[in-house]
């Protein structure tokens, strides 16, 4: 009889142990299901998604209104549809850099000293910094920066949109940025970038000036530039 109870007791103990192991495993699975991410990483991801969702939501709301107007106009004849389509077409042209634009902005002038040849990396650094600062239109020596713009050295020249500029000549970068941030942030920041570049290049290589301009005009992309060639692109269905 005692042996029998001992048997039961040992089965009981083993089952309890198995149960505990399963429960602890479940806990681990729970922890793994969080992807091993830290709280900070999760919160960052949430913020990113919130930002993306807000943008998409705004875009969808605008699209929805636009479509309602188009549908109403289709139903009642031509009406104002012409105006809506032309308006959006022009907004796309501005976004693509196909129209000249103006507003307050900054002008960066890079003057190489005797014997120094400008590096494409210096121009790219300023252009990238301006893009990161939220510049909405940028030009390099009046050559509009568009999606396909390259800035690269070719022997004694720097090519921008396929146009050559002498590396010993003055380069002028213009940009239209948030007017509210020009004095407080954009100009001081670009000056610090300029200082850091000058230190890397040796002080006497190039003079860098950064100034605010109340009336910056950025020209449209010239129609003979390579950006206009779209034969390799097929609109996706």
């Amino acid at each position: 009889m005692n042996k029998k109870w001992l048997q039961y007791a040992s089965i009981l103990v083993i089952c309890i142990l198995v149960g505990m192991v399963i429960a602890l495993l479940m806990k681990n699975i729970n922890a793994q299901s969080l992807g091993g991410k830290s709280l900070q990483e999760l919160q960052n991801s949430i913020i990113d998604y919130q930002k993306k969702n807000e943008e998409l939501n705004n875009r969808n709301t605008r699209l929805y209104e636009y479509l309602r107007e188009l549908e109403a106009e289709l139903a009642s004849g031509l009406g104002e549809s012409y105006i809506h389509i032309v308006e959006e077409k022009e907004q796309y042209a501005i976004f693509a850099g196909l129209r000249a634009v103006k507003n307050q902005g900054v002008v960066i002038t890079l003057t190489p000293h005797d014997g120094y040849q400008m590096q494409d990396a210096v121009l790219r650094q300023f252009v990238n910094e301006l893009s990161a600062l939220g510049a909405q239109a940028i030009s390099i020596n009046d050559e509009r920066k568009v999606a396909t713009t390259e800035i690269r050295t070719s022997l004694d020249n720097i090519l921008v949109n396929g146009v050559s500029y002498s590396r010993s000549a003055v380069f002028e970068i213009k940009a239209i940025v948030d007017p509210a941030k020009i004095d407080s942030y954009v100009v001081p920041y670009l000056l610090s970038v300029g200082d850091s570049i000058r230190k890397q290049l040796a002080d006497d290589a190039v003079t860098i000036s950064v100034r605010k301009d109340e009336n910056v005009t950025i020209p449209a992309l010239n129609e003979d530039r390579i950006a206009y060639q779209m034969e390799l692109l097929t609109p996706a269905e």
Partner: peptide, 20 residues
């Protein structure tokens, strides 16, 4: 106008595209 609209959309990155 629509042709120009589509061209601008293509240049602006406002239409999906495919290619090699």
């Amino acid at each position: 106008v629509l042709d120009e609209f589509h061209e601008n959309a293509l240049l602006a990155g406002m239409s999906g595209v495919e290619g090699r």
